[in-house]
Amino acid sequence: MNLKQIALTVFLFPAALYALPGVSAEEEHEHEHRQHDAHVHGIAALNLVLEGKEVHIEFESPAANIVGFEHAPSTEADYAVLDKAVATLKEGNPLFKFNDKAGCRMETAKVVSSLLDEEHDGHEDEDEHAYEEKNNKEQEHQEDHSDIEVSYHFECTAPDKLKQLTVELFDVFPGTEKLKVQYIIENKQGGLELTAADHVIKF
């Protein structure tokens, strides 16, 4: 299963749940949930999983850590900063340095962010956007805080020799103070927090 398929399923699944017969609109309304994800500037999350020869890395960060703002880009300068950040993030090899013996190289990288959506949507959808805002306070709230998510796919020639990963995000994006890491290397699970001073994961 490739990343796109996974992403698609994850996106579609909640929608599929809503579509289940027997869940009426009223019932849905009564069970309205007011959940808010934690969003702390300076703290980002990194998930890493190795299965077979493939390493999947998910990096999720408040946009403020990466580009310094979380509003929709409006000026030329905003767009320039955003484009530069996306270009940097897409280069996975200098950001994630595995120990040489493992022979890991980046295959693909995908950047997702609400800031980027805005860029594509332009002004055409303004009506629709206003409608959404009126109907969904949650959505409005999310507009205040934007995240940037990047999924990487690495391929390793000697995954059994994978012992260490040096994360170079801190120098590149100084807004990042703490990185919460969860990793799964075959049957070993672990978690730790990285900082600029201590940015090496030892599996």
Partner: peptide, 25 residues
């Protein structure tokens, strides 16, 4: 490979406030 996606699915499960944890983490 699906661990983190499944973890997010459960953490964002709309009808009930659930938490999914990775035991080793």
């Amino acid at each position: 490979t699906a661990t983190f996606h499944m973890q997010r699915f459960i953490n964002d499960y709309p009808k009930e406030s659930l938490s999914a944890i990775i035991p080793g983490v």
